[in-house]
């Protein structure tokens, strides 16, 4: 039940940002539309029935705290790619490597895949279970950084409340 309430609140907030009108007609239409969408797709937003709302909110807050480091990493990775593209001889040495992770949660796996795509010179090619197949622009540097990026895995696991073995 609390899942439905949270979904409805998030959606009605989203509606207000989109619309910006406070007249009764638009507010009423917003309430009806958000109720319809809540009925259709609450079970999409929350991954399983057991997920407690409090835990989701805690995850969200921790994730916002994690964002600045992610953004810094994204900026550094982008300048790296720009340097390699603009350099006359293009110093690249591409290759495919695999990374093993202990993640079990769907959202955690997705977040790590997208973080890998955005950050250290790698793009996620395939995710099977906890094993990530990754294409790297510079193979050795990526292997090195992925070994170092164990702390990225650890902090993401901490954000989503999954203990690392």
């Amino acid at each position: 039940m609390s899942q439905y309430i949270v979904t409805f609140a998030v959606l009605i907030f989203f509606w207000y940002i989109l619309s910006g009108y406070l007249e009764p007609f638009y507010i009423g239409a917003g309430i009806i539309c958000c109720a319809i969408v809540t009925l259709i797709s609450t079970d999409l937003l929350f991954l399983s029935n057991e997920t407690s709302v409090l835990r989701s909110v805690g995850t969200f807050i921790r994730f916002i705290g994690y964002l600045p480091r992610l953004i810094l990493a994204i900026i550094i990775a982008n300048f790296d790619v720009a340097y390699r593209v603009l350099h006359p001889r293009m110093p690249i040495d591409p290759g495919i490597i695999t990374v093993d992770t202990p993640f079990k949660n769907d959202i955690l796996r997705t977040a790590f895949a997208n973080a890998l795509t955005l950050t250290p010179g790698t793009v996620t090619v395939e995710v099977v279970g906890g094993r990530y197949t990754v294409h790297a622009l510079v193979r050795e540097a990526a292997e090195e950084s992925l070994l170092r990026e164990k702390d990225m895995q650890k902090s993401l696991a901490h954000v989503f409340g999954e203990g690392e073995e």
């Binding site: 790619v81 593209v85 603009l86 294409h135």
Partner: peptide
């Protein structure tokens, strides 16, 4: 704007599909 141009240049210059995805995916998003 600089990153958008770099993304498009990478799409032209880089040698194969996988490396082009790096330029397009990272630089364009950024």
């Amino acid at each position: 704007l600089f990153f958008m141009v770099v993304g498009a240049l990478g799409l032209i210059r880089l040698p194969d599909f996988y490396t082009r995805v790096h330029a397009s995916g990272k630089c364009d998003t950024m």
